[in-house]
Computed example of a mutant assay.
Amino acid sequence: MKPVVERLAGQYGGRFLLGEVDADRSRDLMTRYNVRYLPTLVPVRDSAELPNSRLIGYPGEAKLKAWIDARLAKG
């Protein structure tokens, strides 16, 4: 999933910032955002998670792009 997300981030030309967290080294952050499964994408705006918006697992590129588009449309 990582290469696809990185490529999509480039295609969106800065419309979203992609951050990566090392789950083993950032247990406090994993706890803060209640991440229990990997991969998990947690969309955050103004330091708060967008409600009902996280993505768990890799749905494939087309669904991932649709998920990103839906998050960007909300803001």
Rank of each mutant, 00 (worst) to 15 (best):
P3G: 12
Y58I: 08
F16P: 03
Y58W: 10
T31Q: 12
T31E: 15
K74R: 11
R7C: 07
L8T: 05
L18I: 05
E6N: 03
I56S: 13
G75E: 03
V21I: 09
P43Y: 01
I56D: 14
P51L: 07
I56G: 03
E6V: 13
L41G: 09
W67V: 10
A62E: 11
K2P: 12
A9R: 11
I68E: 03
D69W: 01
T31A: 09
T40M: 03
Y37W: 11
L41R: 08
Y37I: 10
V42R: 02
I56F: 02
P43T: 06
A66M: 12
L17V: 13
S53G: 14
A23K: 01
L55C: 04
T40H: 00
D46V: 00
P43R: 01
R25H: 07
P51W: 05
A48C: 02
V44G: 13
K74G: 09
A9L: 01
E6M: 08
K2A: 14
A23Y: 00
R54L: 00
T40R: 00
E6P: 03
V4I: 15
D24F: 07
D22F: 09
D28R: 01
P59F: 11
A48R: 04
G57L: 09
G60W: 12
R15V: 06
R54W: 00
N52D: 15
G19P: 02
R27T: 15
R54N: 05
D28Q: 08
R15I: 08
N34V: 11
L29K: 02
I68P: 05
L29P: 00
D28Y: 06
L38F: 08
A23W: 00
A73P: 02
T40S: 05
E49A: 15
S26F: 15
E49P: 04
L18G: 11
L8M: 08
A73T: 04
E20R: 15
R54C: 02
V35F: 09
G75C: 00
